[in-house]
Nucleic acid binder design. Structure first.
Lengths: 221, 221
DNA sequence: ATTATCTATAGATCTATAGATAATGC
DNA sequence: ATTATCTATAGATCTATAGATAATGC
């Protein structure tokens, strides 16, 4: 019984990608050390030997996966739109909504788990993913924050630097990570739409927007 | 060369605790599956065989560790004080500061990692830890929020339910988890005091406190 | 006499490779 | 003829246990 098991033979490059895609949930759940080559091969529907035709070691697969995920990390839908808007309070609100929804709903469990795994390890993956994702977004955020300040939409004492961006980011990421296990790890479990709304208002107030600006630029739901 | 290696012989119960304490950083970093019994024994300074005199399996050690950490989870210093204050805006601010500092500075890397490991697994540990830690605190928080509302210290639209508590909690936890890897996984890296201050102000605004109330009840640094 | 501890090891599992086979492409 | 794939397996490591020894407590 030598030869192919399932009759599907792929080109080298295709197979390589298929492996990385299939293997992601395993690494995401168990981490580099917890995942076994047997599990990885089973998930990819191939023999363990074939894994090693494509990668020299288990950790090479893991790092190739990180690289692929980073490369495939698309700018969130809606970024293009925002990039070409003039800097205003309205753009600031859209920018924040973008960050929050991307982390909260735009990310699969597997992606979120890979971030958490990275934080428990050397952080390389999280760092390069954030760098790639938010490079443009931070600039847009700061521009718009500046504009909001000039328009008089910020309360006294509101921060004008990137801290507001990163607190928004970290809050959304924190909420996302706490939703990972089943059942969820927190008592606070509102339905999706309500959660988004609550977080958005918390953040908009948190960065120092006045009520008038919030009411004008943010529409719930 | 049979017998003792380091000449230290302990009573059963003492040794059990010593094992769990010594083993915590290993499980925290590598997780249940990533840690090997060899590493665990080495960390505890004993033979692998002795591990199995105290616990029936590796995962039993892991769960015993979770149980110990949950049990040892002390109410944060300062809780006692707050419990006996009358519900006011001032108490609300102290309560928030307590949550934030406990997560941000009151928690070792090992403890924070165990939480993250739990979120990647079944979440049981995180859930029971939070339940134990915050049981009293949530009630205090809600009381005080109510009082702040009555005193006219809340802006229009501010939430009156536990969502404010949990967003505070999740933000602080998120920031803490992102600080785990070396180097840190985020571009935003202010010194400790500045970070605390920035987060506190973000949260106090986020839950809807008016500027007057913030200025009156929160003193930076 | 009891018990805390060790060394040694069995058996399972895991990582990685060698060598064979079947599908593809010329 | 090349290459994608498999089976089989070596060698390392891992989990857990058996059986021996040394310290403690009576």
């Amino acid at each position: 019984m030598y030869g192919m098991a399932n009759g599907k033979r792929m080109q080298h490059e295709k197979r390589r990608e298929a492996i990385l895609t299939a293997v992601a949930p395993i690494f995401a759940r168990k981490g580099l050390h917890g995942a076994t080559t047997r599990e990885l091969a089973a998930a990819a529907g191939i023999s363990e030997a074939l894994l090693y035709k494509h990668f020299p070691s288990k950790s090479a697969i893991f790092h190739a996966l990180d690289a692929m995920e980073t490369q495939h990390a698309l700018p969130p839908p809606g970024l293009e739109l925002i990039l070409h808007m003039p800097p205003t309070t309205g753009r600031l609100v859209r920018c924040i909504r973008l960050i929050v929804t991307q982390l909260l709903h735009g990310e699969s469990d597997t992606e979120a788990r890979l971030i958490a795994q990275s934080l428990l390890d050397d952080g390389d993956y999280a760092r390069s993913l954030f760098a790639k994702r938010h490079q443009q977004l931070v600039a847009v955020f700061l521009d718009s924050l500046q504009a909001a300040a000039k328009a008089g939409d910020l309360r006294k004492g509101a921060a004008r630097d990137e801290s507001a961006f990163w607190l928004t980011h970290h809050l959304a990421l924190g909420v996302r990570l706490l939703k990972l296990p089943m059942p969820v790890a927190t008592e606070w479990q509102p339905p999706e739409e309500e959660a988004l709304d609550t977080i958005m208002l918390f953040v908009l107030r948190g960065i120092g927007l006045k009520n008038s600006a919030i009411n004008h630029h943010y529409v719930a739901g």
